[in-house]
Design a protein around this nucleic acid. Structure first.
Lengths: 220, 220
DNA sequence: AAAAGTATTTTTGTATCCACGTATCATCAA
DNA sequence: TTGATGATACGTGGATACAAAAATACTTTT
């Protein structure tokens, strides 16, 4: 008999949550689309109850909107909301960098360089997933902060903006300044000045918003 | 026939969510307590299903922990987690103050003074709810930032720490430096220096954590 | 043909039901 | 006495059933 992996047999609710979240991140559903529990339940072979429960969490994450008696629709971000999320990310990720600073050793710097390199490669050969690589870089720094709740909040925001990042990358197809700015973050971390590194990260995050917004609501 | 107020007849899930959240904020349930859907459902006259759904959102808020096949228990914060939340609050509320600055007029300053006064009165005559007044002060400044998502995140954190704030206030019974620090925040806002005001708020929030922690895990 | 009303279908919200997992506690062996 | 074993009660996860609300299609009327 094969070994029993308890994480394999997650509850149906978890399965439904992951399934829908993944589809939303990949942009398979578009803002305004109506999600019908029955359909999704059928897709993954369960009843609609666990799907309904998953919807509650997705709504709490801000990924969908639930209105009484009229179901679940995919949430869309206005340009203002997009800016707001980047504003929040800027201070949270700034904090993460500040906290990460004293925990970074030379080995870790090499890992960050590697991640930077991987992102660049993914950006050039459109095949690799640039958006995921980009997130991995940010995620690695957050992880270094050693703050579970902070990490969780930041990654929740990354999920919300992921579909927009994908549209952005698909359209403009060049990570533009991302490589330089990430390199600047690493440099700031190497400098040992925590306050400065926080500042650089804040500016990197905030600086991305207007570029991204241009693709969400073109030429305003 | 009376007018129909649609917000009065919310769904059962909303009712369950509010009911349990309120109980948690007031400290009626203690960390580690097991919440049995059947019991709660009976209390407010509904079946288990809406309660189960409410649990998902409460778990997403970090108020309870849901583990497969072993139900719902009230989440407790370790001292580390408490500090982490105050760290996050410090940058979020710092951001809120920075954004609020350009939107405050003289009338608003008077309102803040009034809220400060009300908090002080509630602190002296133990009757009024000091914790709520304290939150109202912070909430007002957040509201001035005009950032719905920021406001939402901050208030979610306030809910999580509310039970600990209550224990703190009940035990030490003096808001201590709160009045002075809030006054300092107002003063910083009046100064017109956004960066300085952000700094003052960050320090106020961070400074509260160690005092509070002392009551959560006494004399460590 | 447009508007209004009505019937029909779909979907949501909630309750109930059942199978399985977990905890509790008594029993028994060492 | 202690530790394993098994029976029992309880709770959880999920499916199904049913009522109420919305959305949709279909008349009817003008």
């Amino acid at each position: 008999m094969p070994a029993n992996f308890p994480e394999m047999s997650a509850t149906a609710e978890v399965e439904a949550y992951n399934h829908v979240q993944r589809a939303l991140r990949l942009g398979r559903y578009k803002p305004g689309d109506r999600l019908i529990p029955e359909e999704i339940a059928a897709e993954i072979g369960m009843s609609r109850m666990p799907v309904r429960e998953a919807f509650r969490r997705l709504a709490s994450d801000g990924l969908v909107v639930l209105r009484p008696n009229r179901g679940c629709v995919v949430a869309g971000l206005t340009v203002d909301e997009l800016f707001e999320i980047f504003e929040i990310r800027s201070v949270l990720e700034g904090l993460a960098v500040r906290l990460a600073m004293p925990r970074i050793d030379e080995e870790e710097f090499e890992e960050l360089d590697r991640l930077l390199e991987r992102m660049e490669r993914a950006g050039q050969s459109g095949g690799g997933d640039w958006v995921v690589r980009h997130q991995e870089f940010h995620g690695r720094i957050c992880a270094l902060s050693q703050r579970p709740k902070l990490i969780h909040q930041i990654s929740a925001l990354h999920v919300v903006i992921e579909p927009y990042m994908r549209i952005w990358f698909d359209d403009c197809n060049k990570p533009l300044s991302a490589r330089e700015e990430h390199a600047a973050v690493i440099a700031a971390l190497r400098s040992g000045d925590a306050h400065h590194a926080e500042q650089v990260m804040q500016e990197h995050v905030l600086g991305t918003a207007p570029l991204l917004a241009e693709f969400v609501s073109p030429s305003r």
